[in-house]
Amino acid sequence: MCGQRARAASQGRARCCALPSTVPLLLAYLAYLALGTGVFWMLESPAAQASKARFKRDKWALLRNFTCLDGSALDSLIRGIIHAYQTGDIVLGNTTSMGRWEIMGSFFFSVSTITTIGYGNLSPHTMAARLFCIFFALVGIPLNLVVLNHLGHLMEQGVHRCARRLDGAWQDPAKARWLTGSGALLSGLLLFLLLPPLLFSHMEGWSYVEGFYFAFITLSTVGFGDYVIGMDPSRQYPLWYKNTVSLWILFGMAWLALIIKLILSLMVTRGRSYACCHHSSEGDLKPRSWRQGPEGEAEPHPPRPGCYPEGPVGARQHSEASTQVSRCGKQS
């Protein structure tokens, strides 16, 4: 009887959600990918078509001006130029780019490998180097993650230390945490994203926006390879340049990992804050299923983790629902 009453009373009231959170998360992920696909297609497709038409026009103009050069020979020359650019061996005049396999080029390739950036402008071509790259990345990527985690932990400790000092001086923990967090965010933006484009603009001849784009694409480990430092054969680069950029990549990735971790924690906290139960117009909560106790009383199943809202409100509502069920069992 109590089970029937409980089922009748639970109709139109709150029920625990049955769908797991994985399905909405996957749907949101696919929707975000679809959004990016549409926007990139709309923005880049016209420019790509124009570039393709311009290349064909220049190619046929070159063949008309130089009748001794046939189409297959020109295509072979173009493929050779592309291969030379990928290996960093572009020769203009008497100078070559620094992207080839010299000491600094090899060092920068090692950094881009273990940091999973992979610009794509330089890659091993011998089978021995490819096999070594597999084992080098297999050990280097976890080692890089450990180093980044350690650096991020040191940065976080520094922020907490500053917060404790400000707390002792101001006697206001919330204000101290807010100020130190804002200071860490602004100083990181200035040191890793706003100032480095000035160096890239001076050394590479890029605009500030191009340098900022390269900085973010590098630190986020996306690494498209459309902008790579030290690849202009008409420029002379000092030896400290790539070493400084390598250190900037290491510490900048640690800082950006902290920012991404903060954003991720906020998103996860926001997702957990939503109640797993749908409220009815009366605002009561009922368990999803019931069972019979040892004395014939109807008892609710233990609440699943995350099924009821966190905090005293959810606990009170759940206790009220359990009290109603116990009273019903005693009356029966």
Rank of each mutant, 00 (worst) to 15 (best):
N144F: 14
H160E: 11
H83P: 00
V228Q: 14
M42C: 14
A169P: 01
S187V: 10
L25Y: 06
Q157M: 05
I114C: 06
R327Q: 14
K261D: 08
S281V: 10
G183E: 00
A321G: 05
Y237S: 09
A31L: 14
L63A: 06
G152S: 14
M253K: 15
M253C: 15
L63S: 07
I229Y: 10
R165N: 01
G3K: 13
Y208H: 11
R270W: 08
G181E: 03
P124F: 11
F224Y: 09
D226Q: 12
E210P: 05
C2Y: 06
S72I: 02
M155N: 00
S332I: 03
I141V: 15
H301P: 00
I103P: 10
W248G: 09
I134C: 02
C328R: 11
S273P: 03
T96A: 13
H153Q: 08
A61V: 10
G314N: 07
S234E: 13
L145P: 01
L63D: 06
R7Y: 12
H153R: 08
V39P: 04
F216D: 03
L199C: 04
H150W: 15
L285D: 04
L122Y: 10
S187G: 05
L69V: 15
F200Q: 04
A8S: 09
G118I: 01
A61Y: 00
L199W: 08
Q171R: 10
E156W: 08
W178H: 11
F135T: 11
S322G: 05
G12E: 13
R79V: 09
V23P: 02
H125S: 13
A184C: 00
A73N: 13
F251G: 00
R291D: 00
P300T: 04
L69F: 02
R15C: 05
